Amino acid sequence: MQAETGTVLEEAAASGEDAKRLDVINQVLEEIRPTLQRDGGDCRLVKVDGKKIMVSLSGACVMCKLSGMTLEGIQSRLVEELGEFVRVVPVMGGVPA
Rank of each mutant, 00 (worst) to 15 (best):
M1R: 13
M1G: 14
A3I: 07
E4R: 14
E4V: 02
T5F: 12
T5D: 10
G6V: 03
G6E: 12
L9R: 14
L9D: 01
E10K: 12
E10I: 00
A13I: 05
A13G: 03
A13P: 00
A13Q: 08
A14I: 06
A14P: 01
G16D: 12
E17F: 05
D18S: 14
K20H: 12
K20A: 14
R21I: 03
I25D: 06
Q27I: 07
V28A: 03
V28R: 00
V28Y: 01
L29N: 01
L29A: 01
L29R: 06
E30N: 10
E31V: 05
I32P: 09
I32Q: 00
I32R: 08
R33L: 02
T35L: 07
Q37R: 15
R38T: 08
R38H: 11
D39P: 03
D39S: 14
G40I: 10
D42A: 10
C43F: 03
C43A: 12
C43R: 00
R44L: 05
L45I: 09
L45H: 03
L45P: 02
K47T: 09
K47H: 03
V48H: 09
G50C: 05
K51H: 04
K51G: 06
K51C: 08
K52S: 12
K52C: 02
I53L: 07
V55W: 02
S56N: 13
S56R: 03
S56P: 00
S56A: 14
L57W: 07
A60S: 15
C61S: 06
C61P: 04
V62C: 03
V62F: 05
V62H: 07
V62A: 05
M63G: 14
M63Q: 13
C64F: 10
C64S: 15
K65L: 12
L66E: 00
S67H: 10
S67W: 00
G68F: 04
M69L: 12
M69W: 12
T70W: 02
T70F: 09
L71Q: 00
I74K: 06
Q75T: 02
R77T: 08
L78H: 06
V79W: 04
L82R: 08
G83I: 08
E84W: 04
E84Q: 13
F85M: 06
F85K: 14
F85G: 05
R87Y: 07
R87D: 08
R87M: 09
V88S: 02
V89F: 00
P90L: 01
P90N: 08
P90C: 05
V91R: 02
M92S: 14
M92A: 11
M92P: 01
G94D: 04
G94F: 00
V95N: 10
P96F: 05
A97Y: 15
A97M: 14
